[in-house]
Simulated scan of single mutants.
Amino acid sequence: MDDNSLTYELTEGVAVITFNRPELLNALGHPHAKKFLELLDRAVDDGARALITTGVGRFYSSGGDLTTNLDLSDIGEPMERLWNPLSEKLMNLPIPVITAMNGPAVGVSVSLALLSDIVIAEPQGYFLLSFANLGLIPDGGATWLLAKSIGRQRAMNMIMLAERLPVQQAYEWGLVSSVVETGESLSVAREIARKLAKGPTLAYNLIRQSMLAALENGFSESLKIERVLQKQAGASHDCAEALAAFAEKRKPLFVGS
């Protein structure tokens, strides 16, 4: 694998992971999933306080690299070993995640894009789950993400008919946070990420946990989980700092703990 096919940078507390295979529309093979996992760990270890994923060129990503050899006797094995852990790690990352969707997201990259907290998309983009055309099912958690986000009927249409969902329609359905001018998704994402990086990142982590719990549990159980997480938030340095700043009529200085 070309070491530059996924790039990493950290500036002002914001980590950016970029799919850098424009000649292959940023298709991702199994080695890229492994590298992606390593870079997510690196971002956390480096003290990043927000993360952006984006692509180079016309596509965010065209999904799985079909030019590699696929073992059709058990195509689920690399899912269990690499892609599922990648989706789990993105979902449970302790910092905010933003997608700068510079172009279409196809296949597994639909999941990678939607696992973020905020999706900034450009008008030429679209979502496409073409698995059914290959006799396969979506992966990366796409069925869960779509069913929870847009409902069963819309999700089934999107998956079974394997038709493009333009970003404007995705915005109307609530899959995309905002649609910006062509070429501006990364700059807008950076602006948002820098704002989040200056915020109470421990609270953001707990908010991510609370949201996931709400999606997976009933109302009463969600209330119980909120109670536990709120205890952690209330005991944090950032909460004490925010209250002190309010009393002193100044802006709080959050440290993320």
Score class of each variant (00 low, 15 high):
residue 58 R to P: 00
residue 237 H to S: 04
residue 12 E to K: 14
residue 196 L to R: 09
residue 48 A to M: 09
residue 239 C to G: 00
residue 51 L to Y: 09
residue 48 A to D: 05
residue 72 L to I: 11
residue 69 N to C: 01
residue 68 T to P: 01
residue 149 S to V: 06
residue 127 F to R: 11
residue 182 T to G: 01
residue 186 L to A: 01
residue 239 C to A: 04
residue 238 D to P: 04
residue 61 S to M: 07
residue 32 H to Q: 15
residue 128 L to S: 05
residue 44 V to R: 13
residue 140 G to M: 08
residue 1 M to Y: 10
residue 207 I to Q: 13
residue 62 S to M: 12
residue 139 D to G: 14
residue 159 I to C: 04
residue 227 R to P: 00
residue 55 G to V: 07
residue 223 L to W: 02
residue 126 Y to R: 07
residue 165 L to R: 14
residue 119 V to Y: 10
residue 153 Q to S: 04
residue 116 S to T: 15
residue 190 R to N: 00
residue 18 T to A: 04
residue 201 T to P: 06
residue 242 A to E: 03
residue 198 K to V: 00
residue 46 D to H: 14
residue 39 L to N: 09
residue 207 I to M: 14
residue 240 A to V: 00
residue 185 S to W: 09
residue 30 H to K: 07
residue 115 L to V: 01
residue 124 Q to N: 13
residue 245 A to Y: 04
residue 212 L to P: 00
residue 96 P to V: 07
residue 125 G to M: 12
residue 35 K to A: 08
residue 247 A to Y: 07
residue 11 T to H: 10
residue 184 E to P: 00
residue 131 F to K: 01
residue 182 T to D: 06
residue 27 A to G: 08
residue 243 L to G: 00
residue 252 P to K: 02
residue 17 I to Y: 07
residue 21 R to L: 09
residue 54 T to R: 08
residue 250 R to E: 01
residue 40 L to D: 08
residue 115 L to Q: 13
residue 77 E to W: 10
residue 207 I to S: 07
residue 113 A to M: 12
residue 134 L to H: 14
residue 254 F to C: 02
residue 205 N to Q: 11
residue 157 N to D: 13
residue 121 A to D: 09
residue 160 M to Y: 09
residue 21 R to T: 13
residue 16 V to R: 09
residue 60 Y to A: 02
residue 148 K to S: 08
residue 245 A to I: 02
residue 117 D to W: 10
residue 255 V to A: 03
residue 87 S to V: 12
residue 214 A to G: 14
residue 158 M to T: 02
residue 49 R to N: 01
residue 90 L to G: 03
residue 153 Q to Y: 06
residue 118 I to T: 14
residue 154 R to E: 06
residue 146 L to P: 07
residue 229 L to R: 15
residue 127 F to C: 08
residue 226 E to K: 13
residue 95 I to Q: 10
residue 58 R to T: 03
residue 168 Q to T: 12
residue 133 N to W: 04
residue 159 I to W: 03
residue 177 S to W: 15
residue 117 D to G: 11
residue 143 T to V: 15
residue 170 A to R: 14
residue 186 L to N: 01
residue 57 G to V: 03
residue 177 S to R: 14
residue 233 A to D: 04
residue 117 D to V: 05
residue 126 Y to C: 11
residue 36 F to N: 03
residue 56 V to Y: 05
residue 244 A to G: 00
residue 118 I to Q: 02
residue 137 I to W: 10
residue 222 S to W: 12
residue 81 R to Y: 05
residue 201 T to G: 04
residue 209 Q to D: 06
residue 8 Y to H: 06
residue 99 T to C: 14
residue 40 L to I: 12
residue 252 P to N: 01
residue 142 A to R: 05
residue 216 E to W: 07
residue 161 L to D: 11
residue 189 A to E: 03
residue 35 K to W: 03
residue 88 E to R: 15
residue 35 K to G: 00
residue 33 A to T: 04
residue 116 S to G: 12
residue 207 I to D: 07
residue 62 S to E: 06
residue 110 V to C: 15
residue 153 Q to C: 00
residue 5 S to L: 09
residue 14 V to C: 01
residue 1 M to F: 10
residue 96 P to E: 10
residue 248 E to H: 06
residue 70 L to V: 14
residue 22 P to Y: 07
residue 168 Q to E: 15
residue 204 Y to M: 05
residue 114 L to K: 13
residue 124 Q to I: 03
residue 141 G to I: 07
residue 162 A to W: 04
residue 252 P to M: 03
residue 148 K to A: 06
residue 26 N to F: 10
residue 20 N to I: 02
residue 160 M to F: 11
residue 157 N to W: 07
residue 108 V to E: 14
residue 150 I to F: 10
residue 131 F to P: 00
residue 91 M to E: 15
